[in-house]
Design a protein around this nucleic acid. Structure first.
Length: 868
RNA sequence: GCGGGUGUGGCGGAAUUGGUAGACGCGACGGACUCAAAAUCCGUUUCUGGCGACAGAGUGUCGGUUCGAGUCCGACCACCCGCACCA
């Protein structure tokens, strides 16, 4: 028999699906909608195996949901702005738009060759002015709605390149390209006020039932709500003279106020700056802190250091108690008020600091059953959990109270005294969106010397990125462009300058899911289309976007709703985070990374294909260009065809886990493809392609096959619904095995009941495999005599009566140990089962001369005989 | 440090959520077909002992609950991920 040739078959069906517009998303009819979306790719050049796996998962869902009678939206677009295009321009002299355009063309062709059920009519690219003009318009909407702010903020500045660097471009405190030490520079930048939504973004997580718990938790921690209070201390100098300044601190542990033994201020705190004017020691400390750098590593290594300011805070509840003020390097100016009170007894960091500077350590919370005077603190701070078992000690009017009640009392007294108030704070910061880059969406703002900041009038949108820029000098090409930024002020008509910053590319990706609903609309989102398709029912992508992209998108949906563009505020009802594709790593004797195709493995081990030199095999890691452990997707397609690759990347490994690519695995998938093709060929050869009628009666073997087929269909349906593709594939394998055996059993000239059962089993296999291997499935469908497109055929129906057997098989255990298996009628009662189990020879032998004490019968599952 | 997760054959992984551990695939071994190879097909494949029927052990470790534990509870070990001076 000839072999199945994917290279001739696959393009045929791809063209036919395209011609018949099978995957165009329709909004008509009574069907329910389903919106499935994979995170859109950055057009980096070529697709890799990770893309293949990611988009195949979405494709399976899209095809399955279509078969289940949904109107499916499954679009594709390009996250096309970003730094690599500018780097290509600098390194290879190719314009970013040309580089990006070529990559898109290549990747589109590659995606089409893997047979994705995409509505290509809805394709978008974020670098297209027809896309980003709406982004500019929404920025102006958000500005009007008070969701945008301009403020000064620190950036990484490369003094040689004369440009701002992203955090990832700063390596060991130096610019990645220039190698120059990076400076902190204060620049006026645009911010989205995402922190306005902190509470809503936090609460919204509770409703996202179809998100992985892990991602919800990560977002929750990122938003970082804390409930505390902010209050202020009266200050004195060393001689006891009252100061005008008050010291405002934020704490979540106001119950421990009687344990306070110092206050610590960030080096950038205004009171510290004031103290530095008169104290050289403080001034030196401030300089040291500034020089320390801001990398997390540096912060981690730095000792807990501080300097006394010579000032004192007066305890709010205890007359005459003076608490010394320090500036300390572990206090952040950017959180709370930039100042804290330290309670060393119950906080390790405060304790380390207090021990170092010889400050008192007063325990204020202790177990109720311990005498307060016996509580002492050693090297470890006492961790206190709130609860009935602990109470306040050494704390004046709080002593004896529980932690929660103590907090209430302190808050009430401070509020009554007008020195503080309860306050909620968040870790979440506003989203800085200004980038001093060329290849991004221009920020539609004009700076006028007389009118100040003026939004570009809507009639003048889009602000288009100029093509004629050069990359031969450092800095932002838009800044250097000879005339682009020089404009007249739309407000006063005087000379003015355009904003030359562009948006962070996360802005582009924060609303693309909405644009797909109506990609050619002259509004950002057509109201009806948005209301119909949103939210995305299933969003698929890597966990690396668990925080930023997903949080920004959630913010955008809220902001768009406020501006009237959307009717939902959660963009993604369901989220699925898929694992990465990994591969072994290889190095030659001199330590150079090798590509997998440069390595052969045989009995002697791994060696170089050309030199024959021994190769060392390293750990299995995520495919990356730097370690060269990548396989080219197009080469694999040329070798195996799309179906084989699609089948392989979903087999074996659960989709949320990292999988290992291996050529043996791909070959195994290829074998299955051939096997399925032969099986369907065998069935067609035996039963013909004519009409088949359900036989009036089925022989036992044919009925068994039908049962297996319906059981498999039932299981696969549930598995696909739950995205357990590896299990679905295992089930399909099982049915293929059973059906292949049945073909042999049925013989060359099968009876009508066999014909029906064989056909049914074959068609179930094809229909179930279709979402994963659509080309072969279409081909097989036609082999069985159908002239319809399988892409348009409904998912088969399970006959529930075929899911139950006439008999059931139960394990028989003696004292929890399996000894035998019995088969009884499905309707057998507990007593019948017990009798059958006790009659089993093996069971009897295991019982021996022991006495049966008890028999536990779980119908359908197990019998356990307890004997002693 | 804080938070979360995972641990099952040579490997990827199943196990109806407390009920026959190892489905399915990969790899390996044996056999058939072939002059030969590829392809294909049929077996075997958790470990130990035994020719065998069979017996014993077995889901990171130790303990507990239960007629029954991979699954639940407690303690520990190992690895992975996220956040990280957040007051």
């Amino acid at each position: 028999m000839e072999r199945y040739n994917p290279h001739s078959v696959e393009p045929y069906w791809q063209n036919l699906w395209c011609e018949k517009r099978c995957f165009a998303a329709l909004e008509d009819g009574d069907k329910p909608k389903y919106y499935v979306l994979e995170m859109f790719p950055y057009p980096s050049g070529r697709i890799h195996i990770g893309h293949l796996r990611n988009y195949t998962m979405g494709d399976v869902i899209a095809r399955y949901k279509r078969a289940r009678g949904f109107n499916v939206l499954h679009p594709m677009g390009w996250d096309a702005f970003g730094l690599p295009a500018e780097n290509a321009a600098i390194e290879r002299g190719i314009h970013p738009s040309e580089w990006t355009g070529r990559n898109i063309a290549t990747m589109r062709r590659q995606f089409k060759s893997i047979g994705l059920a995409i509505d290509w009519e809805r394709e978008i690219a974020t670098c297209d002015p027809s896309y980003y003009r709406h982004e500019q318009e929404m920025f102006i909407d958000f500005l009007a709605a008070g969701l945008v702010e301009r403020k000064v903020s620190a950036v990484n500045w490369d003094p040689v390149e004369n440009t701002v660097l992203a955090n990832e471009q700063v390596i060991d405190g130096r610019g990645w390209r220039s190698g120059a030490p990076v400076e902190k520079r204060e620049l006026a930048q645009w911010f989205f006020k995402i922190s306005d939504f902190a509470e809503d973004l936090l609460h919204g997580l509770d409703r996202l039932k179809h998100w992985p718990e892990k991602v919800r938790l990560m977002q929750k921690n990122w938003i970082g709500r804390s409930d505390g209070m902010q209050f202020s201390f009266v200050l004195e100098d060393g001689e006891g003279n009252a100061l005008d300044d008050r010291l405002s601190v934020y704490t979540t542990r106001h119950d421990t106020i009687f344990g306070a033994s110092f206050c610590a201020l960030a080096a950038e705190h205004p009171i510290v700056a004031k103290a530095a004017r008169t104290s050289p020691e403080v001034a030196q400390f401030v300089r040291d802190c500034a020089a320390l750098g801001t990398s997390e590593e540096a912060i981690e290594r730095a000792q807990k250091k501080g300097v006394a300011l010579g000032l004192y805070a007066l305890h709010p509840f205890r007359d005459g108690v003076r608490i010394p003020l320090f500036s300390a390097n572990f206090v952040l100016m950017t959180y709370g008020t930039g100042a804290i009170f330290g309670c060393p007894a119950h906080d390790q960091r405060d304790l380390d600091f207090a021990r170092h500077y010889g400050l008192p350590v007063i325990p204020v919370v202790a177990p109720r059953d311990v005498a307060p005077e016996t509580v002492s603190v050693g090297r470890e701070a006492l961790t206190v959990q709130d609860g009935d078992a602990v109470c306040m000690i050494n704390s004046d009017f709080l002593s004896g109270l529980g932690v929660a009640e103590a907090k209430r009392q302190v808050a009430r007294r401070m509020e009554d005294a007008g020195i503080g108030e309860r306050m909620v704070k968040y870790r979440l910061r506003d989203w800085g969106i200004s980038r001093q880059r060329y290849w991004g969406c221009p920020i539609p703002i004009i700076h006028c010397p007389t009118c100040g900041v003026v939004p570009v009038p809507r009639a003048d949108l889009p602000v288009i990125l100029p093509d004629d820029v050069t990359f031969d000098q450092p800095g932002n090409p838009l800044e250097c462009h000879r005339d682009w930024k020089h404009v007249v002020c739309p407000s006063c008509g005087g000379p003015a300058e355009r904003e030359t910053d562009t948006f962070d590319t996360f802005v582009d990706s924060s609303w693309h899911f909405a644009r797909f609903c109506s990609p050619r609309s002259d509004r950002p989102v057509d109201r009806d289309a948005g209301a119909y398709w949103m939210p995305v029912d299933r969003y698929i992508g890597g966990v690396e976007h668990a925080i930023l992209h997903l949080l920004y998108s959630r913010f955008f949906a809220r902001a768009m709703r406020r501006a009237g563009h959307l009717t939902v505020d959660e963009p993604f009802a369901g989220l699925f985070t898929q694992g990465m594709v990994c591969h072994e790593t290889y190095k030659d004797a001199s330590g150079n990374w090798l590509y997998p195709h440069e390595v052969v493995k045989d009995a002697q081990g791994a060696r170089h294909t050309k030199t024959g030199e021994a190769v060392s095999v390293g750990p299995i890691e995520a495919m990356s260009k730097s370690k060269r452990n990548v396989v080219d997707c197009e080469e694999m397609l040329a070798e195996f065809g799309a179906d084989t690759l699609r089948w392989f990347v979903l087999s074996d490994t659960p989709p949320e886990r990292d999988m290992e690519w291996s050529s043996a695995g791909a070959q195994g998938a290829a074998r299955f493809i051939q096997r399925l093709w032969r099986l369907v060929g065998d069935i067609a050869a035996r039963v013909g392609t004519g009409a088949r009628r359900e036989s009036a009666s089925f022989g036992a073997p044919a009925l068994d096959l039908r049962r297996a087929a319906h059981r498999a269909l039932d299981a696969v349906t549930k598995d696909i619904e739950n995205l357990r593709f590896n299990r679905a594939i295992a089930r399909i394998h099982e049915l293929v095995n059973v059906t292949a055996q049945a073909v042999r059993d049925a013989g060359e000239d099968p009876s009508p009941d066999w014909c029906f059962a064989l056909c049914e089993a074959g068609e179930f296999v094809i229909a179930m495999a279709f979402p994963v291997i659509p080309h072969l499935a279409e081909e097989c469908w036609r082999m069985l005599g159908h002239d319809t497109l399988l892409a348009n055929v409904a998912w088969p129906k399970v006959d529930p009566s075929l899911l139950v057997d006439k008999t059931m098989t139960l394990a028989v255990q003696i004292n929890g140990r399996r000894r035998d298996e019995i088969t009884v009628a499905r309707q057998a009662g507990r007593k019948d089962i017990e009798v059958a189990a006790l009659a089993s020879g093996k069971a009897r032998r295991a019982i021996g001369n022991k006495t049966v004490r008890k028999v536990i019968v779980i119908p359908g599952q197990i019998v356990n005989i307890v004997a002693s």
